[in-house]
Design a protein around this nucleic acid. Structure first.
Length: 291
DNA sequence: AGCTTACCTTGTGC
DNA sequence: AGCACAAGGTAAG
């Protein structure tokens, strides 16, 4: 199937899948392959045309955020030179609408890990507990269901290199499995209420909650602050904070306190507005790409 | 009430 | 070899 992209609606498949928001996409030749909704989605971009197999157009549009009015979003978040450069470099990067359950587990696992290690953990979980799906003579694995992970033993979960995160993942699986519809409803709440619900999961703090809200629940105002964004704010936006706060944050070795996190994240939401999450993702990807 | 500290595991890169 | 560090969270004090 194909989608012709509107010239007024930029899209960059590569940037969207490489910016670190999703962990289970692989590129083979010029095709991207990922497991979404228990199906293999195979997709590539040729200029303004998207070519894909195995799923419908509506699904592709929803998953890749093609319904977001990116031109309008740019107009609202393009506030300064730094974000302007990031937008220019990654023009067409979009926020995905991932599966909330997979996103929950992904970002519980993401604490204190780099992206390659996160990918490996999730791949381990899928191989060990996910349903096998064959496609193009290759074996893929669906992301494990809450039910399947809820019944997995700590011993088996540990074999996936989750480390201390095994207990968080197991508890999350049990909680979601006990009431799947309640979990599914979280995305329909406001940003604040949805965040409060997510914080009820052990292993989910402010940062992880913001990632889940942004990457799977369409809460585009969420502004996750990780080490990279922390660095970006200190480098380019420190004039928005007091001298004391800046020097305190820049001296920190350990993680941010709740209050410090909220101050940085609230800055992002206030400064960039209701699409702050888009700004975050551009700044994050740009900062990492300049390493 | 809000902050600091220790601890939670594993892998990678210098 | 040894160490720092990686899209952090929790519980104790």
């Amino acid at each position: 199937m194909r989608i012709k992209l509107d010239a007024s609606q930029p899209f960059d498949l590569e940037a969207t899948l490489c910016c670190g928001q999703a962990f289970r996409w692989e590129k083979q030749d010029d095709w991207w392959k990922g497991v979404v909704a228990n199906k293999i989605l195979k997709i590539r971009q040729k200029g303004a045309e998207l070519q894909f197999e195995n799923v419908g157009s509506d699904f592709v549009k929803a998953y890749f955020g093609l319904n977001d009015d990116l031109v309008s979003i740019y107009a609202q978040i393009n506030k300064d030179r730094q974000i302007g450069q990031a937008i220019q470099k990654f023009d067409g990067l979009r926020i995905l609408r991932q599966d909330p359950w997979e996103c929950l587990v992904s970002y519980i696992c993401a604490t204190y890990k780099n992206i390659p290690a996160i990918k490996r953990m999730l791949q381990n979980l899928a191989q060990r507990f996910g349903e096998k799906i064959s496609f193009d003579n290759q074996g893929y694995y669906a992301f494990p269901t809450p039910e399947r992970l809820a019944e997995a033993s700590i011993t088996d979960l540990k074999k996936c290199s989750l480390g201390y995160r095994v207990h968080y993942v197991q508890q999350a699986a049990k909680k979601v499995n006990e009431n799947e519809s309640e979990f599914a409803q979280i995305r329909n709440l406001t940003y604040e209420k949805a965040k409060a619900k997510l914080l009820g999961f052990s292993g989910v703090g402010l940062k992880v909650a913001d990632c889940i809200l942004l990457f799977s629940m369409g809460k585009l105002e969420a502004f996750p602050v990780d080490r990279w964004i922390d660095r970006v704010i200190l480098r380019y936006y420190s004039n928005h904070f007091s001298q004391e706060f800046v020097s305190k944050i820049s001296r920190k070795q350990s993680s941010l306190s709740k209050a410090e996190y909220e101050r940085l994240s609230a800055f992002g939401r206030n400064y960039f507005g209701k699409y702050a999450g888009y700004a975050q993702e551009y700044l994050y990807h740009y900062e990492r790409s300049c390493q």
